[in-house]
């Protein structure tokens, strides 16, 4: 039986990624089809795909620099083609690192590497940091955030050692701001931007958590929406509206299987698809 990704989301399985299975589940939870595509399979399989997700993990063990070895892989030629043609592409965590190292993001100069996801800078600690964060949505229309209201706060967890968006090129930064490409920024539960740790958990410039390209079809985000796609995944002590909702669902496993805050990113894709039909 020939494999086909027609109208499905392809999740690229680079060697060493480790979030591919739960990402498939999260996409399917909104009623879309999703399957894995191994990095060395025929890229032509992606031709009719609804979208592509580069999932989280440690592709090629983060050797040399997180994301960079995958960025040089053959399959990225195809992703480049798809990105240019306006197909939705989402990079989560390590996937975001791949998209940044490929120059898809910010994409102001095509395929020019204008950003970096540098090692976290944190108060009193370094290296890997796993925690829940809050994201403030804003900026341009992006396929992957289209169902999120402007200024809406979405809690989603992070888990990474290199998630600090930064650039040396202030023109690029100004361009990204002008274009509204910084669609997700770390904020407090109440939606305030605070550049200090732990609100901004990695020292990201402008508290950047997710950056899309100018056209809004490609998004690179460090937080993991697939780990926040069911209510049961929300920590009971999170606080705020979602924490409260989670706490109230205690004792009712049916309610716990309802949507969590992160599902909105996949829901956005579904609505985008329906809008196009």
């Amino acid at each position: 039986m020939a494999r086909s990704f027609k109208d499905k989301v392809a999740i690229i399985q680079f060697p060493g990624v480790n979030c591919e299975y739960e990402t498939v589940d999260a996409v399917r939870s909104v009623g879309l089809g999703a399957d894995l595509l191994r990095w060395n399979e025929d890229p032509a399989l992606l031709e009719n795909a609804l979208g592509v997700i580069v999932p989280g993990g440690f592709s090629y063990q983060d050797r040399i620099r997180a994301g960079v070895v995958s960025a040089k892989d053959h399959i990225m030629d195809k992703l480049s083609e798809l990105a240019a043609a306006g197909h939705p592409i989402l990079g989560i965590c390590n996937g975001a690192q791949v998209l940044v190292e490929s120059g898809f993001i910010p994409g102001i100069h095509w395929e020019s590497v204008d950003l970096a996801l540098a090692p976290n800078v944190m108060e009193d600690r370094d290296g890997y940091y796993c925690s829940w964060t809050h994201l403030l949505h804003g900026g341009t229309d992006c396929v992957w955030t289209s169902a999120i209201g402007n200024e809406e706060v979405v809690p989603v967890p992070i888990a990474h050692a290199e998630g600090r968006f930064t650039t040396d090129d202030m023109e690029v930064l100004e361009g990204m701001k002008k274009n509204g490409q910084i669609v997700l920024r770390y904020c407090t539960q109440a939606g305030q931007i605070d550049p200090s740790f732990p609100t901004n958990p990695n020292g990201s410039l402008e508290s950047m958590a997710g950056v899309c390209n100018r056209e809004g079809n490609v998004l690179a985000m460090m937080p993991h929406p697939e780990r926040a796609s069911w209510l049961r995944q929300v920590p009971e002590d999170l606080g705020g509206g979602w924490g409260m909702k989670r706490s109230k669902a205690g004792g009712d496993s049916g309610k716990m299987e309802a949507a969590g805050p992160g599902r909105i990113f996949f829901e956005s894709l579904r609505r985008w698809k329906e809008g196009g039909e």
Binding site: C19, Y21, E22, A26, G127, Y128, C130, A159
Partner: peptide
Amino acid sequence: HYDSEVQG
């Protein structure tokens, strides 16, 4: 320091 969220 540990990933306690992976696998969801």
